[in-house]
Write a protein that binds this DNA or RNA. Structure first.
Length: 418
RNA sequence: GUGGGUAUAGCUCAGCCGGUAGAGCGCUGGAUUGUGGUUCCAGAUGUCGUGGGUUCAAAUCCCACUACCCACCCCA
């Protein structure tokens, strides 16, 4: 038997209904903020991610699906989509289009990690980018929007974490300070942290080993190292969020794993997701476009939602929603009735009624199926009914049955759907 | 890359100290001719993850492998 490859999976009904719901909500919300969809390729030149995401990140250094094309070009299945969107922005000179570029996307990403709960090798992200403004008001609006998406999906009990990682200059001063402070105590830290002190001191802040916590707690906060412009920016973001009554927790130890982030970073966590409890992450990336070759500065901010994890949370919160529903299950009796039924079904479907027809089997079987598929009504169509012009309409929940004319039938069905 | 757990019917699982398989749910058919849900009856489906070993005899004991899950790492 051929099975789906490790870390990939089939999204079957009824789970696929939840996926559709989540995507519908996201589209509606983002359209109301005047975002438009962008669809970029699923693979790109490898160098895009190396330069965009950062050569030293785990994503680039050990998790990418990279392959050589027949002409020798190195291509990579996208591990995230911000780099691709910015590439497209530069390539198509979207900086020349008036106003901000507000773009959203949804689709599969690929990272070769060991799969576990909430983590797959092919996973799906719903994300958005705003390019062309440094304003902290944009940061707040982006955060407001993503919270709105989660809420409208029916989620609650999530927590918004907020931080500023400063800019090139002030972060460099902070990292230097961290290195110095950690140098003295490194031998008391866990094995991983001893390595991180060398490779990426910021990661020490994120360590989960209990024994390391006292040392980490004593380390200075990046927020005390922000330069004046970064400090003002962060204060403004918080003020704008406060204006909206959006709850958040400032978490100076929140570290993001992509090199391009600067200033505002944020994350939303949700319980009952297992160890991978991060539903979405995002932040500002003012220098990214230029590092990818843009002549014009193109400051931006964006987020991406882990759709697999969001769906998981929604299923957890509302296990009974997203049921399969059939409005009308038609049970034709015989060939003549079947021909009559198909014409009737076509008309009803054109008016938005969800109709199923029992193409074979006896009446008993048809009603059994109507029951199993959760149909609201069953319609019995036999020669008697065609002759008299009155169908037998059965309410599957109550068991009541009435003889209805064609007009009465549409009245009942359209009444439910309009 | 590292660690732990689990592998028996479509699904969830039982099968103690070895004697070649069961339950519930689901599925199919039936309880008379055009009426579902409840109930009753009947039925189908398993190379007991794979390979090897011990034994008269292995789903059960031993070894190896593989797959899946969870966790570390990292991130969405």
């Amino acid at each position: 038997m051929i099975r789906a490859v490790k870390g990939t999976r089939d999204i079957l009904p009824p789970a696929s209904r939840v996926w559709n719901h989540v995507e519908d909500v996201a589209r509606r919300v983002m359209q109301s903020y005047h975002y438009s969809e962008i669809r970029t390729p699923i693979f790109e030149e490898t160098s895009l991610f190396a330069r965009g995401v950062g050569e030293e990140t785990d994503i680039v250094s050990k998790e990418m699906y990279t392959f050589e094309d027949r002409d020798g070009a190195s291509l990579t299945l996208r591990p995230e989509n911000t780099a691709g969107v910015i590439r497209s922005f530069i390539e198509h000179r979207l900086d020349q289009v008036p106003g901000l570029q507000k773009l959203y996307y949804m689709g599969p990403m690929f990272r070769r990690e060991r799969p576990q709960k909430g983590r797959y090798r092919q996973f799906s992200q719903i994300g958005a980018e705003v390019i062309g403004s440094e304003s902290p008001a944009v940061d707040a609006e982006v955060i407001e929007m993503v919270i709105e998406i989660l809420t409208r999906c029916g989620l609650d009990g999530f927590q918004l974490l907020l931080n500023s990682v400063g800019c090139k200059e002030c972060r460099a001063r902070y990292v230097a300070e961290l290195r110095e402070r950690l140098a003295g105590v490194a031998n008391r830290l866990c094995h991983d942290c001893q390595r991180r002190v060398q490779t990426n001191p910021l990661r020490v802040l994120d360590c989960k080993i209990p024994e390391d916590q006292p040392i980490i707690d004593a380390l200075p906060s990046i927020l005390d190292f922000l330069c004046e412009p970064c400090g003002i920016h962060f204060a403004a973001v918080r003020a704008y969020l406060n204006d909206r009554g959006i709850q958040y927790e400032v978490k100076p130890r929140l570290v993001r794993g992509l090199d391009y982030y600067m200033r505002t970073t944020f994350e939303v966590v949700h319980g009952a997701l297992g160890a991978q409890n991060s539903v979405l992450g995002g932040g500002r990336y003012d220098g990214l476009a230029q590092s990818l070759g843009s002549k014009a500065p193109a400051p931006g901010i964006g987020f991406s939602i882990g759709e697999d994890r969001l769906v998981m949370s929604v299923e957890e919160a509302h296990p009974d929603r997203h049921k399969d529903t059939v409005d009308l299950f038609i049970a034709p009796m015989g060939g003549n009735a079947l021909r009559h039924s198909t014409v009737l079904a076509r008309e009803l479907r054109r008016n938005g009624v969800c109709v199923e027809i029992a193409f074979e089997g006896k009446l008993k079987r048809a009603l059994e199926l109507a029951n199993k598929t959760g149909a609201r009504y069953a319609l019995i169509v036999g020669d008697n009914e065609i002759q008299s012009g009155a169908y037998a309409l059965k309410n599957m929940a109550t068991g009541e049955q009435e003889n209805v004319s064609r007009e009465r039938l549409t009245e009942v069905l359209y009444g439910r759907n309009h």
